[in-house]
Design a protein around this nucleic acid. Structure first.
Length: 157
DNA sequence: GCCAACGTTGGC
DNA sequence: GCCAACGTTGGC
């Protein structure tokens, strides 16, 4: 079982949006970065858990979600009207992939990026690297558990 | 709004 | 294959 961090700008899609979905489940599509694509396509499996992270103002981890469907072709790449349309991807040769994720929890309080930076055990997280732009990244079970514990305590340590 | 970091593109 | 230019991301 693997653990992940999923990044989203809350103005475009927030943890509350996920919780409000029918079945509290959505297709995590629109990722257009090859490294993130590889994680979606090759490594994310049903049952994996993810920290849901809001980027932008007040960047923070805000909850958790579960992968309920492993990687499959991202159909938004085939829709010319979609923001993430990419003519290089076709149903015959899909270039981009998506997974389905289901809402699991919203933290009692968001865990700010700055708070995570102060936890030595989280220092290895890709998220904390300066210039990190990956929207899908692996984390360890230990990191997942620590972030969840911080969220349960309202972000305190 | 600014700027650093990064990925992608395209000329050579 | 190199590298400059450009667009995008994301923290501040």
């Amino acid at each position: 079982m693997n653990y992940w961090l999923l990044k989203s700008e809350p103005e475009s899609y927030s943890i509350d949006d996920l919780a409000a979905e029918p079945g509290q489940t959505t297709c995590w599509s629109g990722v257009r970065n090859f490294q993130a694509r590889n994680f979606l396509r090759d490594q994310m499996a049903e049952g994996d858990m993810a920290v849901f992270y809001h980027s932008g103002t007040g960047p923070s981890a805000v909850g958790t979600a579960r992968v309920v469907r492993a990687g499959y072709p991202d159909e938004t790449a085939w829709d010319p009207a979609d923001n993430h349309f990419d003519p290089k991807s076709t149903p015959e040769r899909p270039l981009w992939f998506a997974v389905d994720v289901r809402f699991v929890s919203k933290f009692a309080a968001p865990v700010p990026l700055g708070a995570m930076r102060h936890v030595t055990a989280l220092n290895g997280m890709e998220l904390l690297r300066k210039g990190s732009r990956l929207s899908v990244m692996p984390i360890t079970k230990e990191e997942f558990d620590i972030v969840c514990a911080m969220g349960a305590q309202g972000g305190q340590q």
